[in-house]
Write a protein that binds this DNA or RNA. Structure first.
Lengths: 158, 158
DNA sequence: AACAAAATATAAGAGCTCTGATATCATGCG
DNA sequence: CGCATGATATCAGAGCTCTTATATTTTGTT
């Protein structure tokens, strides 16, 4: 396949601009896309996407949270979260408790089936998570974590 | 806002699970999302998205590439790239040269306006790119780059 | 009490991305 | 030559994500 291109000659993955000399933003996008794909493949059996898994996880840690707070936690817009929550509700993984003390806010909580689903997903994903740190020394992992957090928070209002 | 939640107490950005102790995959997704948003804000004036900018950049480095090779380079599916290319063509930033020596393959190339657009976008993005490395030592930057490449390539066929 | 401001939720429209399916073209094998 | 295989391109359907806009509720000001 792809016999002989005269021009620049397309590099293999991990070489040239595709490798460690490439733009950091480009590498970041590639890494996130590749990992998202691996997560969704691992969770395909359960029909759960990576954003859904993240939402279930947050909901498990902070039950009763509102859509708006969920969006803040996930660094997403409320509209985006509303779509994800809608799909999860349709699948029966979470329930909305519409009213509350306040009128407009809806509290979100995992259903029993949602909790069971999260447990199964978590096992799969933790395997991938371990692979993520496999080749890193303790120092390197710390540097990577610090960097990821700083990138996520740059330009944030808080 | 959000006066007193009894339960776990929602952490501020960069703290607890949202910070350096969180899941690496979660941090990766947040960082990529936040950076993509910054890029698209910076390029909003030109109506160019991050994937479109990446496509223009690749096309500039490898003119005459096919949709399929472009997909391989970008670690995306051919269908995804086809959508992006379609939007860029509609905007007049690239041209398809349908035929070739082979019959089915379409060669892609930047138009003059596409080249001018890329130049303007590149200036904006390079500013963000520099911010990405601001707090990193040379050693740390090397570790981050190596890690991103390894994540992007894990599970790849070749 | 009345109005303004802020927060919450949702809808509409657009782009990105996947999977699965379909059509075209090239090459290799009989 | 005829058919199978593989590569390329595209369509259809689904989910994620953004922006912009709208409706409802709560809160603060007058």
């Amino acid at each position: 396949m792809r016999k002989q291109e005269m021009p620049p000659a397309i590099p293999a993955a991990g070489e040239g601009k595709r490798g460690e000399e490439g733009y950091l933003g480009y590498l970041l996008r590639q890494a996130a896309g590749a990992y998202r794909l691996r997560v969704e493949r691992a969770l395909d059996e359960f029909g759960v996407t990576q954003p859904q898994f993240a939402t279930l996880t947050i909901l498990s840690a902070y039950p009763g949270i509102s859509n708006a707070d969920l969006a803040r936690l996930a660094v997403l817009t409320p509209q985006t979260v509303s779509v994800i929550v809608g799909n999860l509700e349709r699948a029966g993984s979470l329930v909305r408790k519409p009213h509350a003390v306040h009128g407009r806010i809806q509290h979100l909580d995992l259903s029993d089936s949602g909790r069971a689903l999260l447990k199964k997903c978590r096992e799969r994903v933790q395997k991938l998570e371990r692979e993520l740190t496999a080749g890193l020394s303790a120092n390197e992992e710390r540097a990577v974590r610090r960097w990821l957090v700083s990138v996520a928070m740059a330009g944030a209002t808080g």
